[in-house]
Design a protein around this nucleic acid. Structure first.
Length: 571
DNA sequence: GCCGTTTTCGGCCCGACTGTTTTCAGTCG
C-alpha cells in the first residue's frame, strides 16, 4: 500500500505536469515539483499533520500545505481533479514519449484533438501533423521511434544489469581517457536503473565518443556531440556518455551523479553565496572566475557542506543534515564482519557447504551462517535428520577455519498464522534463525501484520528475512502495517534483513529508514545460493546506505560476542 | 508557489543537443 506521503507527492507532481501542459507559470510548476520531492522524501507521515506541521517541510508553504490537507481529508486534491477534467489523461501520457514534451503534447491536442498515444501514431501515419508549427519530418520520425521504444522495452533494469554494463563500458573507454567512471542513479545505488551515465575526463573527446558509439551492443545513436553522446543498447537501455576536461572532474562527477533534486539544492546554495555551480566547476557569479572543480570534496566544502555520500543524494533531508554537520557515518561493505543468510545444495543452493564456506573465508568474514530452508517449504525436502547431519558437518569444517566462526542456522517459513517450522526445543539447537514469508502473499493487511508480529515474538526467530517478499518487477510487496511490524521488531530484539539479491533489495530503502527511526536493528545478508552471489553484498550495502544506516544499526557489523548477546534475545 | 545575514518583492539551477528556425524553442537530464 502506498504511503500517504507518496500519494500526496504524486498528486502534486501531477498538478505540475498538468500545469506544464496548460502553459502555467514555469516557476509555479517548479515549486510544485520541488514540494512533491520534499513530501515524498520527508521522513514523517503527513497524514496526521496540521497546517503548521506541513509548512515545516521545506518547499511547502501555505498554498501547498492546504492542498495536502485537502488530500488528507478527501484522498485527492481539488485542483488536480479540475485540471484532469480539462486535460484528458491521454494527453499527459503523450509526454511519456521521448522527445515529446508538454508543449508538443498540447499542440497536437489543441490543433488535432489527439489525446492518446495510438491516436498520435495514427495521425502521423496519415500525414495529419504536416504543417503543424514546429513539427517537421524529423520530429515525426522521432515521435514514431519514441513510441516504438516505449512499446518494446524502455523499462528500468535491475541494478546488477546496469552495473555489469557500466563496468564493461568503463573498461572499454578507460584506456582512452584520463579518468572514467559511472555516475547517475547507478552511483546512487537506486534499486532499478532507467539509464546508465558514464563520465570521462579528457582533453580529446573525439576518440572516446567514437569508441563509445562503436561498442558492439550499440543499436542506436540518439545524440552525439563533442561533450555528450547518447546511445541505446540491444536490450533497450540508454547510456549517456559525458566527456569533460580533466580539471572539471569533481564538479562534473558531482553534477552527473545527481539526483536532480539534490543538484538543484546545491546550486541554490551556490547562488545564495554569490556563486554559480555547473558541471565545469564552482564559479564566482560576478567575475565568472573559477573557484574549485577538481574534486567533489572541494565543491561541497566551498558550499559549506561536508562531502555527501552518493547514496544519500536524493533531496531527502541530506542537505539539511549536511548543513548541520549531522550526516550519518554510513555502513560500508568493509564494516561487515559476517553474513547471516546463505544456502547450500542441501536445499536450493547450487554450491556445496565446503564451497560456500570457502567463499565466505575469501570475503574475509569473521563469522558466517549457513541457513538452509526448513521443512515446511516442502519442495526443499528438508528433514530433521538432514539438518542435524549438516550441523555435524559444519562443526567438523570449523577446524579448517580458525579465523572464521561458522554458525549453523536455518531459514524458517513464517506460516499464515505466524508460526514457524519446528518446536522450541529443536529451534534452540540453531545458532541463528532467519524467518521469512514464502507463501500466502495475499493476506489482508491485518492478517499479515499479525503474522509478522507473532514471528517477531518467537524467542528463537532472530532475523526476519526479505520482509516485504517482493520481487522487483515480478511480485508486489506484501501488505502490512509496517510501522506496527517495526515496533514489534524493535521491542522483541528481532533484526530485519536487508537482502542483497538484486531483484529483492528487501527491506527497501524507504522502509529501512522508517524502521530505523523506530529503533529496529538490521542484518545485511547475501541470501547467497551460489558462489557468485557473494558479490551481491554491495547492492545490499547500497540499499542500507540509502536507508541511512550506520554500522551500529547493523548487527552483522558487530563483533561476534555482541552479536551472540543479541541472538539470545530476551531470554 | 516559495522564500529571505543581499530581498516581504522579485528573484527562482544550468547546460547540451536537436530540429526548425534564421536567432531560438523544446526537450532532456
Amino acid at each position: 500500500m502506498a504511503r500517504a506521503n507518496d500519494e500526496a507527492a504524486d498528486l502534486i507532481q501531477e498538478l505540475a505536469d498538468l500545469l506544464s501542459i496548460t502553459g502555467g507559470d514555469g516557476f509555479k510548476i517548479r515549486a510544485y515539483e520541488k514540494a512533491a520531492r520534499a513530501i515524498a522524501g520527508h521522513p514523517d507521515d503527513i497524514s496526521g499533520m496540521d497546517l503548521a506541521g506541513l509548512r515545516k517541510i521545506p518547499a511547502v508553504g501555505e498554498a501547498i500545505a492546504k492542498k495536502v490537507l485537502d488530500y488528507n481529508a478527501t484522498g485527492t486534491i481539488r485542483q488536480v481533479e479540475d485540471l484532469r477534467a480539462q486535460i484528458p489523461a491521454g494527453v499527459r501520457a503523450l509526454t511519456a514519449i521521448p522527445t515529446l514534451g508538454p508543449k508538443k503534447a498540447l499542440a497536437v491536442y489543441e490543433e488535432l484533438g489527439i489525446s492518446s498515444v495510438p491516436e498520435l501514431a495514427e495521425a502521423i501515419k496519415e500525414g495529419r501533423l504536416r504543417g503543424l508549427k514546429g513539427f517537421g519530418a524529423k520530429t515525426e520520425d522521432n515521435i514514431l521511434h519514441g513510441i516504438d521504444l516505449m512499446r518494446q522495452a524502455g523499462e528500468r533494469v535491475l541494478i546488477d544489469v546496469a552495473a555489469d554494463l557500466a563496468e564493461e563500458i568503463v573498461a572499454a573507454l578507460s584506456p582512452l581517457a584520463e579518468r572514467c567512471t559511472h555516475a547517475g542513479s547507478l552511483r546512487r545505488m537506486r534499486e532499478t536503473i532507467g539509464d546508465v551515465d558514464i563520465l570521462a575526463a579528457s582533453t580529446e573527446p573525439r576518440p572516446i565518443m567514437e569508441a563509445f558509439t562503436a561498442l558492439p551492443f550499440v543499436t542506436d545513436v540518439i545524440a552525439s556531440g563533442d561533450k555528450k553522446t547518447s546511445i541505446r543498447t540491444t536490450r533497450g537501455l540508454q547510456v549517456d556518455l559525458r566527456v569533460v576536461p580533466p580539471e572539471s572532474w569533481g564538479a562534473a562527477l558531482q553534477y552527473f551523479t545527481g539526483s536532480q533534486g539534490h543538484n538543484i539544492r546545491t546550486r541554490e546554495i551556490a547562488v545564495r553565496a554569490g556563486l554559480k555551480l555547473s558541471e565545469y566547476g564552482l564559479f564566482s557569479a560576478e567575475s565568472g572566475e573559477l573557484i574549485v572543480s577538481e574534486t567533489e570534496e572541494e565543491v561541497y566544502e566551498r558550499l559549506g557542506l561536508p562531502w555527501v555520500p552518493p547514496t544519500l543524494r536524493e533531496d531527502g533531508g541530506e542537505i539539511e543534515a549536511a548543513l548541520k554537520n549531522e550526516l550519518p557515518r554510513l555502513v560500508t561493505a568493509q564494516d561487515l564482519r559476517g553474513d547471516l543468510h546463505s544456502h547450500t545444495d542441501l536445499t536450493d543452493g547450487v554450491a556445496t557447504l565446503e564451497e560456500m564456506v570457502a567463499a565466505a573465508a575469501e570475503r574475509g568474514l569473521e563469522y558466517y551462517a549457513i541457513t538452509d530452508h526448513a521443512p515446511n517449504l516442502f519442495m526443499q525436502r528438508m528433514t530433521d535428520e538432514k539438518m542435524l547431519a549438516q550441523r555435524e558437518q559444519v562443526r567438523e569444517l570449523q577446524a579448517k577455519y580458525p579465523d572464521l566462526t561458522l554458525l549453523h542456522g536455518t531459514e524458517l517459513n513464517i506460516d499464515p498464522d505466524g508460526e514457524v517450522d519446528w518446536d522450541a526445543d529443536f529451534l534452540a539447537g540453531f545458532d541463528v534463525c532467519v524467518a521469512s514469508v514464502h507463501s500466502a502473499f495475499t493476506q489482508s493487511q491485518a492478517e499479515m501484520t499479525r503474522r509478522f508480529v507473532r514471528a517477531c515474538e518467537n524467542p528463537h526467530v532472530h532475523v526476519i528475512g526479505h520482509p516485504t517478499a517482493r520481487l522487483i518487477g515480478k511480485r508486489s510487496p506484501v501488505d502490512a502495517d509496517w510501522d506496527e511490524v517495526f515496533r514489534a521488531a524493535a521491542r522483541t530484539g528481532t533484526a530485519l534483513e536487508v537482502d542483497s539479491f538484486p531483484d529483492r533489495l528487501d527491506l527497501p530503502a524507504d522502509l529501512i529508514r522508517r524502521a530505523r527511526r523506530l529503533g529496529v536493528k538490521f542484518s545485511i545478508d547475501t541470501d547467497a545460493h551460489a558462489l557468485g552471489h557473494h558479490r551481491n553484498i554491495r547492492y545490499g550495502v547500497g540499499t542500507a546506505q540509502r536507508g541511512w544506516l550506520t554500522p551500529d544499526d547493523v548487527i552483522n557489523t558487530w563483533p561476534l560476542d555482541r552479536l551472540r548477546a543479541f541472538l539470545r534475545k530476551r531470554s
